[in-house]
């Protein structure tokens, strides 16, 4: 039997899936990711849904910033 697919659910953000993956969306589109690890958006705030873009991060109004 092949090794089971391991999906890591993070407490603060995406699910992490190893290997190339295909994600079938409800509207019938299929998104493919060839990365060694893919971060799948669970919060649905990503502008690149279903791929995580760090939109789950806590935001604070601020005057100074790096970058």
């Amino acid at each position: 039997m092949p090794d089971p697919t391991r999906i890591v659910l993070t407490d603060d953000g995406p699910a992490l899936v190893r290997g190339p993956v295909e994600l079938d969306l409800p509207d019938g589109t299929r998104v493919r990711s060839d990365r060694a690890v893919t971060a799948v958006c669970l919060c649905r705030r990503s502008k690149r849904y279903p791929i995580c873009d760090t939109a789950h991060r806590r935001k604070v109004r601020h005057e100074e910033d790096h970058g």
């Binding site: 991060r57 806590r58 935001k59 601020h62 910033d65």
Partner: peptide
Amino acid sequence: LVEPVGPDLRGLS
């Protein structure tokens, strides 16, 4: 991991 937001943030990007 905290993302600062606001209209007048100083930064290159």
